[in-house]
């Protein structure tokens, strides 16, 4: 589904990732861990085309990502839902509008999918906050809304970049459960976190692989959880 073969990424004079190879199989669940600044976000950005590899080959859905034009890249991103640590909402729009943003940009009618939107927001526990503005939401609510936005187009892959970085343990557990639920629906999930306790907590709930970035290299952190 998404495959990196000897991918390196250099910014300026510094190499941030070196010869990374990994394949995200359909329906798999991967944790990506490593200390802050190790390159987790860079790896995720490479996976959805926000950055292009300096060398190596990265293919997504059987397409070499470096050969895609901007329109093709946009279509690719509709198949990859992304949850950022800082959520990236548009503050002048309501929560419902923010979550429906992928519908808007893909030309699908929000009104015809209003039922689905409400259902989705209820699924993440925000069914009563449709008209709230992003600044009115708590950290946990924002993360859950970001997750709802990431999956509204029913993407094949969900990339979560430290979604639990700014929330308490309880909310981290809740977000993890939502991602596990998505994986059980058949979605491929790549969950970047530096919180090893969260990974351990997932052990009993999901068959996942743990990838660790250390010194610009990607390693399998151990046996499957």
């Amino acid at each position: 589904m998404i495959e990196l073969e000897n991918v390196s990424y250099t910014y300026g004079d510094g190499e941030l990732l070196s010869n990374v190879s990994v394949e995200l199989q359909p329906g798999s669940f991967h944790f990506l861990t490593g200390p802050s600044g190790s390159g987790k976000t860079t790896l995720l950005k490479l996976c959805y085309g926000a950055l292009l590899p300096t060398s190596g080959r990265l293919s997504a859905f059987d397409q070499d990502i470096s050969t895609l034009d901007r329109d093709q890249m946009a279509l690719l991103r509709r198949r990859v839902g992304v949850v950022h640590q800082n959520c990236q909402f548009l503050d002048h729009m309501t929560l419902a509008e923010n979550v429906a943003l992928p519908l808007m940009v893909s030309g699908r009618s929000e009104s015809s999918e209003h039922g689905d939107l409400t259902e989705l927001l209820s699924w993440v526990g925000l069914g009563t906050r449709l008209d709230a503005r992003p600044p009115e939401l708590s950290g946990g609510e924002r993360q859950r809304a970001a997750l709802a936005r990431a999956v509204i187009l029913s993407p094949d892959v969900v990339l979560a970049d430290e979604p639990t970085g700014n929330v308490d343990w309880e909310m981290s557990q809740r977000l993890l459960r939502l991602l596990i639920e998505l994986n059980r629906m058949g979605k491929t999930v790549l969950f970047a976190t530096h919180d090893l306790s969260l990974i351990r907590a997932a052990k009993s709930q999901i068959q996942a692989r743990v990838l660790r970035i250390s010194q610009r290299k990607l390693q399998l952190a151990g046996a499957d959880l």
């Binding site: 946009a74 279509l75 990236q88 943003l101 940009v105």
Partner: peptide, 16 residues
């Protein structure tokens, strides 16, 4: 620019 980045991330084409 930030809004454009968000739109791109959710799959907006340049035309949109």
């Amino acid at each position: 620019a930030q809004i454009i980045e968000v739109l791109r991330q959710v799959g907006a084409r340049d035309r949109f």
